[in-house]
Amino acid sequence: MPLTLHSPVFVHGGEIPRRHTCDSDDVSPPLAWDEVPEGTRSFVLIVDDPDAPDPAAPRMTWVHWILYNLPPDCRALPEGVTALPPGTLEGLNDWNSTGYGGPCPPIGRHRYFFKLYALDALLPDLNEPTKAELELAMASRIIEEAVLMGTYQRG
């Protein structure tokens, strides 16, 4: 069975609850994963929005959250996670900070991709890498990927 990523608060293709957006508490949703491939030494989580700034005319992918070196025995992150699993490192989101930044689309309904990668190695400390830097470092180390996509439109 393939690696799967899911959340108890939204289904793939469903709406991300307001609580996890800039319109409310802006806390990360709970996430869990199953069917971890053999040989996994770490995980990477990247959350981004390819519809920025306008889904009718997207110009960039906005990065909301980057975690890497999640331990291989980690199978979940709680809602509003503040204490990351031991050894987990963070990258820079597009607000130029670490941590979760929830959906906050300026116009229209955007898609938010929660991408979990199982890697065959721990990555070196990349000192708060950008998404591009992290993708370059992990490119040859990916065993499998799982994606959970949610949507959000401001009311």
Rank of each mutant, 00 (worst) to 15 (best):
Y112C: 09
N69M: 03
T82N: 12
R75N: 09
S97H: 07
G108R: 04
H110T: 01
P85E: 01
P58Y: 06
E90L: 12
A57R: 13
Y112K: 03
H64E: 11
H64A: 07
A56M: 09
Y112G: 05
L45N: 04
T88M: 01
V81S: 04
M60N: 15
A76K: 04
L89R: 06
D73V: 12
P58C: 11
T61V: 13
H64V: 09
M60P: 09
G91N: 01
E79N: 03
G80S: 05
T61W: 05
L67G: 00
A76H: 08
P55R: 11
T98Q: 11
P103I: 11
G80V: 01
P53H: 12
W62H: 14
L89A: 12
P105Y: 07
W65S: 06
W65R: 07
E79I: 10
D51K: 02
I66E: 06
P53Y: 10
H110F: 04
T98L: 02
I107G: 10
D73R: 14
T88V: 04
N96A: 14
L84S: 08
D51V: 02
G108L: 04
G102E: 06
R109H: 12
P50K: 05
N93K: 03
S97P: 00
P53M: 11
N69F: 03
T82G: 13
I107F: 14
C74P: 09
R109D: 07
R75I: 05
W65G: 05
D51C: 08
V81P: 06
L45W: 01
D54E: 13
G102Q: 02
D48R: 00
Y112D: 09
G87Y: 10
Y100S: 04
L84M: 14
P103E: 10
A83P: 11
R111Y: 07
Y68P: 03
P103Q: 05
I66Y: 00
Y100C: 08
T98M: 06
V47M: 08
G87Q: 12
S97M: 12
L45F: 00
P85I: 04
D54W: 11
I66H: 02
G108S: 06
P86Q: 06
C104D: 14
N96G: 11
H110D: 08
D94E: 14
P106T: 10
P53W: 02
L45H: 02
P78R: 02
I66D: 08
